[in-house]
Amino acid sequence: MKRKLHPALIAFAVLVFIFLTGPLVIIIGSSLSSSEFLEFPPQGLSLRWYENAFDISAFRRTMGTSFFLAVAGTALSMLVGVPAAYAMARYRVQLPGWLGNVFVLPVLIPEIVLGFSIMKTITTGYEVPVLPSLLIGHALLVLPYCVRVTGASLNSFDFSIEEAAVSLGCPRWKAFFIVILPNIRAGLIAAFILAFITSLNDVSISLFLTGPGVSTLPIQLLAHMEQFFDPTIASVSVVLMFITVGVMAVVERTLGLTFLTK
């Protein structure tokens, strides 16, 4: 559907893309500043704020927590989400249609409400410690991605291949691992990555669930910003951006980025 574009439209789009990328360039620039203040363009170049970021133990610790939550939370979510997605795709007749809606509830209910409610009922009410509460919160948060994205590739999977394996004597559980999982690999990777990024960047759920000594990186960044306004934040942000670039490279390699417009 290629059409000739009016120059005014092209100019508008160029401005929009400057608007989109400009602020990120500014963060990268000010993270390299050698002065005490956040400024752009930087007066002198240095990596001291990166050093500072890694020197501050709170950043090191919370980055560890954030990674742990993103990996463990996503893994937990995949562990319960993939069988659910499989059941919904394979046994479409036996399971009611509303079941799919249950699994998107975590995106339907405002995140901040979910965080507050988990804090009130689970952490305070049932006295569940901070880290398990956070883990549950993150697993819930990413469940919709795990179920929906995996479900999308299962829906285009031809289940007669599974039947063939079973009729040739392969046990059902084994067929799941050696026939189905390899065939929906792309969907699994995509689900994992989207979930990982969502968890890593989450603010609204962690906001209520972080306790004494346990915090996540975005929450620590927010807290740091309220006290200091130096380039450390910018350099931590750039580190996070590089992680994002790495993840995007994986997506591009495995699926192609056009996947994200679908």
Binding site: P23, I27, F37, L38, V203, I233, S237, L240, M248
Partner: peptide
């Protein structure tokens, strides 16, 4: 262009709001 649109999307909300703090602040 799609990469340029996806990249900000995958960058966290704290980082992206922080950028505007740098842009719109008094200094």
């Amino acid at each position: 262009l799609i990469i340029a649109a996806v990249f900000p999307l995958l960058t966290g909300v704290v980082v992206r709001s922080f950028a505007w703090l740098v842009i719109l602040g008094k200094n």
